[in-house]
Design a protein around this nucleic acid. Structure first.
Lengths: 366, 366
DNA sequence: GTTAGCACTCGATGTATTGGAGTGCTAACA
DNA sequence: TGTTAGCACTCCAATACATCGAGTGCTAAC
């Protein structure tokens, strides 16, 4: 059967109405809603066809119809086409400037949640290059060394090494020089066994330190590429606004998914893997289209943002299938713009970083 | 009216029964449950008294009774007394060793949640001393400096400074020396205006660097004492196990509270402020006793843990008022033991730290 | 002081009944 | 041939009503 223009209009009307009300929509409603001037009976025939084609679904006999995943997909595709051709209304977000990346992300994800009334997530930007840029060893006291490793993209990692034997300033200086000359500009892949044993030889007795520095480098690089992606979420409570997500079992599953960031990471990895999208960089997962089983009652809309220098991450909005896709996509665009804006004007104070507590065991009082 | 021994026993029986079933308990149940050999009628009379005294409450006429906050309080107090006199069964937790404090905390909070079936939280240990221990400036390139500040307790913070004017190695060395000799061993309070202008004078043209280092110090110290406490939670989905917390509005409020770490921080601050507890370090907030309005249907049990060196934090368990206080307190003790254990045996690899991404604006490609 | 007995309350549960929104189908119409 | 009016039918949601049972308070007897 062919999807005539009229059928298309009716389908759109059904979807739009359902987005608003969340209730199944009947033929009579459409008959008045649209400007097609058709009787409800005609609409009924068309709806019957649409159902047969799989665009809409009847929750039970003698209820109205609701869109199927396939129906939503058609609708969203149309939206996307429309969107890309039109210039997105610039409307930057007020992001409070701060030096800590973490703060910015939390702010953004929160803003987005309150603006859209959906649940939101954002992944910290990760850097693809991963070349070692700078290594600094500092002598804290005769048995402790502070290691700081900076890799391209200005990701900083530090570590305190407890030494088995004491070390003096001169030795530290030498090691610094050695490590920097040998390792700068290399990626983890470049640092092979031959190189390592080579360096160890030159380092003489300070093998332990070299080992540790290499571990630290390995850690910083791994942390940025791997599984344990940093993800922030906000507005989890918004799921209770939508009855279709708010019942006990569904809500519980969703809350669990939000807590298990690894599930969210699946969406982000999927988004990042797929570079074939039209250009807006916005991707929509409707229901079962997504990679996460327990979120099959939701739609997820994601977008990648780019801070320049190859530093990029993903923003996502999680809501019911009947979410306001148009609004959501618009908001995602706004956020992308705003983040760009922020980092373009941030030239002056363009550092953001920091670190964490580290407890020192009872053995290390000096 | 006096709380006779018999009334006490009946009250206990009511509470214990209610903890198990979650349903109002009637006189007949108690009449059989206890070994008092009293008829339901007698129990009824006693229950009537207990209600008048405010220990129990009737949800509606002709339902059984449920404990009031006051009733729980009596019960918990008795529990605590009993607990402290008895040696807590040592039963350490399997904590997977890792170098990152964050990982350990996440592990602990998660373990605790799955063990207890309640929602859990843990605050990162914070250090009370806050003396500057070591400052390291490194020249990344002629316009960028890396600042690393270590304070006692080995909390590390770093920062990249973009300079208005170029700087050479020699100048960096001088600044390093200057800052270390002047600031080491001082707390934030010690660093007054006089000292600052003094240092700035000595620093000559590099006022900007001095300012930034001071900012960084201020930030690291503030971050550890202040509001923005790091708190991890787990097992949010567990609230759906308890019907009295699982209805839409309550669940939504709770989820919000868990997301708004600031509310949880209120509990932690309260716990830490109160050093007058019996010695177990365990504190129980029943319903409205807690500082957070939106959690008045919950009980929260907290305990402080101590990693030595004055580094301490708080663990908390959030559940319905009818939570299994005994189990919860026992588990908290176990976790305390385990954390102690972990850091006692961690002497060799006693560092834990790390850091974060920092994007570099498009202006800083070199 | 304790207990048996009884009337009473009130939520929870189950069962009809009804109303309305919606459908599918058929026959008539343009 | 496409459109529409009409009608029988379905099914959910809401309402009302009856019933059950757990629990209470009170009184009178032990």
């Amino acid at each position: 059967m062919e999807l005539t223009d009229r059928k298309r209009k009716i389908l759109n009307a059904i979807i739009r109405n359902y987005l608003e009300t969340g209730e199944p929509v009947g033929s009579r409603t459409i008959s008045r809603y649209t400007d097609l001037n058709l009787s409800s009976a005609t609409i009924r025939n068309e709806m019957s066809d649409l159902e047969e084609m799989g665009y809409i679904v009847q929750p039970h006999t003698s209820a109205g119809r609701i869109p199927s995943d396939k129906g939503y997909r058609l609708y969203v595709n149309a939206l996307v086409e429309e969107k890309t051709s039109q210039v997105s209304a610039m409307n930057t977000l007020m992001i409070y400037k701060t030096n800590r990346m973490e703060e910015i992300l939390k702010q953004v994800v929160r803003l987005l949640a309150t603006r859209t009334n959906y649940t939101t997530m954002i992944s910290a930007p990760s850097y693809k290059g991963n070349k070692v840029k700078f290594i600094q060893l500092s002598r804290l006291n005769e048995r402790q060394l502070l290691t700081v490793v900076v890799i391209e993209g200005n990701i900083i990692k530090n570590h305190i090494i407890d030494l088995d034997e004491s070390i003096n300033e001169e030795q530290v200086l030498k090691l610094n020089l050695l490590l920097n000359t040998r390792l700068n500009g290399l990626t983890l892949a470049d640092i092979n066994l031959g190189l390592i044993s080579n360096i160890k030889e030159e380092a003489g007795i300070h093998v332990q330190v070299v080992n540790d520095v290499l571990d630290t480098i390995a850690e910083v690089i791994r942390a940025e590429t791997d599984e344990n992606m940093e993800i922030y979420t906000s507005g989890a409570n918004n799921i209770f606004r939508y009855p279709e997500l708010a019942d006990k079992s569904r809500a519980s599953q969703l809350i669990t998914a939000l807590e298990e960031k690894s599930l969210l990471a699946d969406f982000i990895k999927d988004t990042e893997a797929d570079e074939t999208d039209p250009g807006t960089g916005i991707k929509v997962y409707i229901g079962e289209e997504g990679p996460v089983e327990s979120m099959k009652d939701c739609s997820v809309v994601t977008a990648t943002y780019d801070l320049g220098d190859g530093l990029q991450g993903t923003i996502g909005i999680i809501g019911p299938k009947r979410m306001d896709y148009e609004k959501v996509m618009h908001n995602l665009n706004t956020v992308k713009e705003s983040l760009n804006e922020l980092f373009r004007t941030k030239k002056v104070t363009d550092e953001v970083t920091d670190d964490e507590v580290m407890p020192s065991g009872p053995g290390s009082q000096t």
